[in-house]
Amino acid sequence: MNTTELPATYVAGELQATNVAGLADWRDYFALLKPRVMTLVVFSAACAMAVAPGHIHPVIGFVAMLCVAVGAGAAGALNQWYEADIDALMKRTANRPLPAGRVDRGEALNFGVAFAVGSVAIMGVAVNWLAAAILAVSILFYVLVYTVGLKRRTPQNIVIGGAAGAFPPLIGWAAVTGDISALPVLLFALIFLWTPPHFWALALFMEADYSKAGVPMLPVTAGATATRRQILLYTLVLVPVSLMPWALGLTGWIYGGTALVFGLGFIACALAVWRNTATLAADMAPEKRMFRFSLLYLFMLFAALVVDYWILPWNA
């Protein structure tokens, strides 16, 4: 091997054998964007865009979705930059690029800031500045309010922080209409109220990890019984709110029926969690079922919204 091909710093032997930061490939940077979280964010924004009144050029619509995806990814990268220390302590996150040492923290910060600024700027110039402003607020809310302000301080972290994940329908709607009306606000409320039962179900069977990392999730600070009660209460509020778009005549029966059926399923899951008394993760089948069902629930409601819009002329 001809070592003259290497940069001077490396030829000089400044890269220690144990330092793998220079070994990150594109997959590590892609992983910084939290692609799985990004999928749900883009899906909810795209559904809101699909049902918003008015017309958007397909290219501009694509640019809007790209900006939402990149903005969400940037927020994920900045979250990982700030949380590298606690990610290293949790089994679920220990192999992320930063705690595993494959990506340098400074690089992750630059990467996140560049993508955040770029996505907001392109959204503003190509789509409209209201959508760009909401995108900017959602990124700042996720990074500054949730990640920096709440996550390590209060068990209400994901209750308030849940707002960050609820912004995408507002962005998708604003990209088409240039304003905000009742339906996107109700979709915001839907995701906002869905977030606590979704994350607390996860936190119940991952409690040991959160406890080890010192993250004050509700199961860590208040115990499993109180968390299960809160999951049920939030679910009982969530389901009526999910029916409001239909009850107010903003959607048709396809969305209403889907929200009702899946809402009853969500309540059934929450009741099973509430009745469970297990303290070991291995015995928390209802919690794991609820976590999986919550993802399906949100997907089905947004999909039903789009199907409803295309089949029934409620927006004509």
Partner: peptide, 23 residues
């Protein structure tokens, strides 16, 4: 300071190439 081995150098160059292509 410890120098990189040949295997590490190869891995470093491959990763750099991958990052450059993505960029």
């Amino acid at each position: 300071m410890e120098r990189m081995t040949d295997a590490q150098t190869e891995a470093f160059i491959a990763a750099r190439k991958s990052r450059n292509k993505a960029l």
